[in-house]
């Protein structure tokens, strides 16, 4: 139960923490189809975040003590 919440929290927090570290991706190379790294790296995280959030949603829904109440 507790592990599940920690896991969900990590899945929800990681994408934001990565993009908070602006110097990590604030450069031009490597380019992808002519897009600077600064752009495509952030765009890529939208897709990764969707997958991570979806897993978090599955976990949270599974362990939610109120799920019977809100069928």
């Amino acid at each position: 139960m507790k592990t599940a919440y920690i896991l969900a929290a990590i899945l929800l927090i990681v994408p934001t923490s990565v993009l908070l570290d602006v110097p990590l991706y604030n450069h031009v190379n490597p380019e992808l189809y002519g897009l600077p790294f600064f752009w495509w790296f952030q765009g890529m995280w939208l897709v990764i975040a969707t997958v991570m959030y979806a897993i978090a949603a599955l976990i949270l829904q599974h362990v939610d003590p109120d799920k019977e109440e809100f069928q």
């Binding site: 752009w39 952030q42 939208l46 959030y53 979806a54 949603a57 829904q61 799920k67 069928q71």
Partner: peptide
């Protein structure tokens, strides 16, 4: 319901690809 709220929200970042 709860399930519909959770899952629909989790998939919303995909809309962001268009914004990007």
């Amino acid at each position: 319901n709860l399930k519909s709220l959770r899952y629909s929200t989790a998939f919303l970042p995909l809309y962001g690809v268009g914004l990007f």
